[in-house]
Design a protein around this nucleic acid. Structure first.
Lengths: 204, 204
DNA sequence: CACTAAGATGAGTGGAAACTCAACTTTATA
DNA sequence: TATAAAGTTGAGTTTCCACTCATCTTAGTG
């Protein structure tokens, strides 16, 4: 679970193994920038300035904009990385033994992360997240759906719960988790209520 | 339920019926500004510009800043009004016949509002909302607590649910409700899950 | 109606942050 | 090692927005 590589063969608009193989220093800087950006945005949210990212990465602003032509692009790159990792984690959980609990575990982990990473949540709230990221989001969506279905088959989640509601709940709680005062205990208690709702048989 | 008056005897730092009784046109403008601000911020979130508010109110920017010395002050004034109205609604519900359902009704209404008013939620997410507004927030908190207790006494909500969790859930779902794609149906389904969780007896 | 203080006006100021580019530095290759 | 293409730099440029203030307008009073 250490260092999933966060490259993506630079900036082609879609080409697979596309154009140029980045010089060594450029590659290094790209990764530094990504790491710095993730840290900065995680702390201060997506409104943190690009200059701060540059400073933390130890490069000049120009370099940041060389690699990511707009702030949006940088944000999207981060998003893609986060979603990718999430996706991996999800696959792991899906392969696990406790099919019923997998969904719950995943939600718990994601919410826990969100509390520390304002980026994800900030981005979800922003209007234009589409484009490149869209495919990652779709992957994530499908992954969650798989977990949901498995949990339902295992009888751990009500049959009438649909993917949309799970995602709505997930994004909502993630957003809420940013609020001051969400400690581990509150998170556990709050999720317990939601989980109870997902498990509970319908009441007239 | 038409027009709850949104004045508050102008801008004293605390004095009760404090200083000057506002000229007639000033009073009119103040209300126009408040209404315009509520509309603008509801649509575009708290990052909308003050100039837009002024334009919509049909006054000059200077006038806005005459009445509300900072943008924060304007935001707070709106917040205060919203919270006040919410508080009234809550009192009404508390006096109602169905003690068990009052909490659920309130949550439902608040989330519905949130979907249309980015202000509330945007503000809750901002860091410095305290100060003047704090007392209104406390009132709201107490009101929710009353509803919760009544619901529990009526046996409609699990005994072990605490105020913190309800508020966490409420803010979370409100935040989430801003997302694109939250229509009435999704809201109903999502809240149904949460309500089931609040009602459900604990599972081992 | 005359007068004045409260209020309204809107061009202007300051600052913050995204983005550019001409000059300079480094990597990779012959 | 010489050279060119790739990469880096950071001082601008531009845009946007909160906030100010000298000047004009109007409500209220005798």
């Amino acid at each position: 679970m250490g260092m999933t590589s966060v490259n993506s063969s630079s900036g082609g608009t879609g080409g697979p193994g596309s154009a140029k193989p980045l010089r060594a220093d450029a590659q290094r800087n790209r990764e530094r920038i990504l790491a710095a950006a993730e840290a900065v945005f995680a702390e201060k949210g997506p409104s943190a300035s690009t200059e701060e990212v540059a400073a933390r990465a130890g490069v000049a602003i120009g370099t940041v904009f060389k690699h990511f032509p707009t702030k949006q692009a940088l944000l999207q790159a981060i998003m893609k990385g986060l979603l990718g990792r999430l996706d991996g984690e999800m696959a792991e959980l899906a392969a696990d033994d406790a099919p019923g609990e997998a969904l719950f575990t995943f939600i718990d982990r994601m919410v826990e992360q969100a509390a520390r990473k304002r980026t994800v949540v900030g981005l979800l709230a922003e209007t234009g997240v589409d484009l490149q990221v869209a495919s990652s989001v779709r992957m994530l969506r499908e992954g969650i759906e798989a977990l949901l279905v498995r949990s339902q088959e295992a009888g751990a989640v009500r049959e009438d719960v649909r993917l949309d509601e799970v995602i709505a709940l997930l994004t909502g709680i993630c957003q809420g988790a940013l609020q001051a005062g969400w400690d581990d205990d509150l998170r556990r208690r709050t999720l317990a209520i939601v989980f109870a709702g997902l498990r509970a048989p319908e009441r007239h």
